[in-house]
């Protein structure tokens, strides 16, 4: 499967925001019909069996309280948004963690 994506700063931001994990979002979720989203969320055991237990999304699914929140977030996304989402996860760009508190080597102290 290949993606041709035309992009702009806002899309870049959205893509990088969603690319916050090392493992791609399972494609059943990324490309599923919004109306089926809820059903796919019951696949958690399958994702775990395939070694995706550490994936933040799978961890979220494990918490019953958040199921509905995530399902509604996924099911509200536009189809193209979900395709972009999947493409971004393949891109594997992460969130930066910046520590401004600890002194750096440049500091006089």
């Amino acid at each position: 499967m290949s993606f041709n994506v035309t992009t702009d700063p806002e899309t870049d931001r959205m893509l990088s925001l969603r690319a916050s994990s090392k493992v791609p979002l399972p494609r059943e979720i990324a490309l599923c019909d919004p109306r089926d989203a809820r059903e796919y969320f019951s696949w958690i055991a399958v994702y775990e069996a395939f070694g995706l237990a550490d994936h933040p999304l799978v961890q979220l699914l494990g918490k019953r309280r958040l199921d509905a929140a995530m399902a509604s977030a996924v099911s509200r996304a536009e189809h193209l948004d979900r395709v972009a989402h999947y493409g971004a996860w393949l891109g594997n760009e992460g969130v930066r963690i910046v520590d401004l508190v600890s002194p750096t080597q440049d500091d006089p102290e």
């Binding site: 990088s16 925001l17 969130v95 401004l100 600890s102």
Partner: peptide, 12 residues
Amino acid sequence: FPRFNESVAIPK
């Protein structure tokens, strides 16, 4: 900061 996709420790 979701807009910058950054987690920052801000000195108190």
